[in-house]
């Protein structure tokens, strides 16, 4: 074999060797544990903090409100839809939840829109329905019809 070819093959062998070493060194630990990805990534994603604690956690302390709510139309609603995520409040009760009293919050769901199905949700025309009044003067959000 000619000398220049031998030298080239040597260079290529070194290059491929370096690549293989790099591949060995740089491949992450849990690679191909389940498939061609980092298996540890699943655990990392799962370990993220959950921010909404769900109504069962709220009812642990606020049992009277949960009781009232369970009798009304809003029985299936999560507390945190209106009050915001509760993860900080659960750890520290001095961290206050949102208590929004304006009409806009109610109108998120109850505003009149032809696209909203009539049989699913009660809708009002905010301009015609007791204009200028606040929703909460007549409706208790925890028990809208009492």
């Amino acid at each position: 074999m000619p000398l220049q070819v031998k030298r080239l093959l040597l260079v290529f062998a070194i290059f491929i060797g370096i690549m293989l070493v790099l591949k060995y060194v740089l491949t992450p630990d849990s690679w191909r544990e389940y498939g061609p990805y980092r298996g540890n990534a699943i655990g990392e994603i799962a370990s993220q903090q959950a921010k909404f604690v769900q109504k069962e956690s709220c009812a642990d302390c606020h049992d009277s409100i949960a009781e009232i709510k369970s009798l009304g139309e809003h029985i299936n609603l999560q507390c945190e839809i209106c009050h915001g995520p509760g993860y900080q409040h659960v750890d520290d009760e001095n961290f206050k939840m949102e208590i929004t009293k304006n009409n806009a919050l109610c109108l998120r769901c109850h505003t009149m829109n032809a696209a909203s199905p009539k049989n699913i949700i009660k809708q009002i025309d905010a301009i015609e329905h007791n204009e200028g009044e606040e929703c909460i003067t007549c409706h208790n959000p925890h028990q809208p019809w009492l």
Binding site: I45, A46, Q48, Q49, F52, Q54, N76, Q78, E80
Partner: peptide, 18 residues
């Protein structure tokens, strides 16, 4: 996925009022 693993519902599923 982090909620599923903790036994909670996904945020969108939880928040849906209907």
């Amino acid at each position: 996925y982090h909620r599923l693993e903790k036994g909670l519902d996904p945020a969108c599923m939880m928040a849906c009022p209907t």
